[in-house]
Write a protein that binds this DNA or RNA. Sequence first.
DNA 1: TCCACCCTTTACAACGTTGTAACAGAGGCG
DNA 2: CGCCTCTGTTACAACGTTGTAAAGGGTGGA
Lengths: 343, 343
Amino acid sequence: MRTAGRASLSDVAALAGVSVKTVSNVVNHYEHVSSAMRERVQRALDELDYRPNMSARHLRGGRSGLIALAVPELDAPYFAELCRHVVRAAERRGWTVLIDQTDGMPERERLVIAGIRAHLIDGVIFSPLASGAPELAVRSDSTPMVLLGERVSGGPIDHVGIDNVAAARAAVDHLLSLGRVRVAAIGKQQRRTAVTARLRARGYMSALRGRGLASDAALVMQVESYHRSDGATAMAALLALPKPPDAVFCFNDLLALGALRTLLQAGVRVPDDVALIGFDDIEESRYSTPTLSTVRPDKASIAETAVALLAARLDEGADTPPRGVTEPFELVPRETTGQRADQ
Amino acid sequence: MRTAGRASLSDVAALAGVSVKTVSNVVNHYEHVSSAMRERVQRALDELDYRPNMSARHLRGGRSGLIALAVPELDAPYFAELCRHVVRAAERRGWTVLIDQTDGMPERERLVIAGIRAHLIDGVIFSPLASGAPELAVRSDSTPMVLLGERVSGGPIDHVGIDNVAAARAAVDHLLSLGRVRVAAIGKQQRRTAVTARLRARGYMSALRGRGLASDAALVMQVESYHRSDGATAMAALLALPKPPDAVFCFNDLLALGALRTLLQAGVRVPDDVALIGFDDIEESRYSTPTLSTVRPDKASIAETAVALLAARLDEGADTPPRGVTEPFELVPRETTGQRADQ
DNA sequence: TCCACCCTTTACAACGTTGTAACAGAGGCG
DNA sequence: CGCCTCTGTTACAACGTTGTAAAGGGTGGA
């Protein structure tokens, strides 16, 4: 037990006085091994503290037991929470997760799409930010990939996501149901590839139309990225308007929490003067004051489905048609839309 | 370019009509290859979209290019932010990071210590929660390991951390400098292995003594873990005391943000009635209302040092004496200790 | 008694890569 | 002209593992 885990099957075989294959059979719980032999080999295994060499197994067997999770930022709470679930779900299937952090940079995402880790990973779960259908369509690498987020139309790639239009509509409709009439939105994006932003914007417009309200372009704030600081800045701009909004829908919780900070600092009462709702239901939203209303996608379920799709794809090969799964979401009213404090 | 990345060196060699080793030489930019040959091989490489097989390289060369980061929880903001930095620092050295999530469970940490990933990773960066010196002392696996956190006395393991006693003392002293006289602490732990908690408690006591104040056991709150909910619960208990505190030092920011929620919900004014300070400086602390005073360890520097120590250990082997690095920290006063709003 | 079958163990090859050594050929020098 | 050195290319082996096939020995039925 003292020696380091550097012994190979042949070392163990030599010590036990048997063939390499017999040791391998014991390690892999092959059925037809006499119990005497099993015991003898096991003693040698223990004495040398044998650990299988994963690279050799992979080389022989073709699978590495590794999957990659490629996300923009690990420290964005939504992705941190998602990552936790993915690691757990992967673990249940005997997979280990390695991390690719793209920062949403086109070049980094291009590498993920091109399969920079081919021959290392069995598959990749990819949450694109800067890449859309065109970038994904030219993908030549054959490593199984599951996309998180929107469906890439026509692409042969499995994906899992939620109905962003419906979810955004539900959020905005919740604000409208409070009687608010000037509902702003924070989170519009310039980039062509920002599909999710576009869908949530569409849901926002749809909710307004549904109540017969005209939309006001001045109330739709564009942001560079989806951090607290972007939300804070956008909210400040909204407050500076001649006719500021009486409610704000933020495309994610971080934006909303940044906006909340600006509102409270400016002495605006939330929700009395301005109601607020976010998107993602990160843990933090349950502890802000006031607590943040939001839309909750089922992250555990998304993670589990993504890993399951990867597993299925791995078993089937690339021939079966791509699958798309839409996971449910839930409206979570809290104090920023007038809910009582009991969470 | 169409075909998937499944071609091997020998496929390329066959296409180019040369030996396998020549292709290998081209791939590895070996010096003595004629430019005509180089070009011919490159064409074949491109045509077949060759990607090196990492497992084969690892098997041959002994290194995998993978390191593990073993942390309790990825979705605790401190670890999420740290993880981001570790991934970046590793990337700079050509390493990929895979994640082990221990949940702070003894059994899971035992596996990390035992080297569950031996022969897969080149090294591991480990942030233990449930394991102390005894558990680490019996480590038999020889995979290089860098500990995040406290020094394991006498152990042969590199580590990087901060001076927790001094940092906690600085935090509490900051509260005392505001004239507070009943300073509570949230974050004490029962478990023997909770070294960090013990050191921060020691810093707390030391700061009180430094100002000639007696410590009151009723003001030191024990918690199960370091989540927002633990902080909220502990704060509620403190408020229920006959003589509640006028300041609270929380052993991390999450506890503090939970406590803050309880305070505000109870109508306590912060910092007027109760001042509050946390530890970690997670991004969230800059956006709560009021913003949270805290102690900032240099996470980027901790991550970089950890990876550098791993690299050094990998080059040197296990023979050189273990290194310990203490990274600096910084007191960050914000609104919960009366700082103005300009962050 | 012989053959067929099963149980147990083994030898061999192959996965893809690269270090080592070796080879052929060209050029320089005595 | 022969030896040496250098360039460019190659064959081979080995990293550790496991599937395949095959061998030795035993058992049971015909």
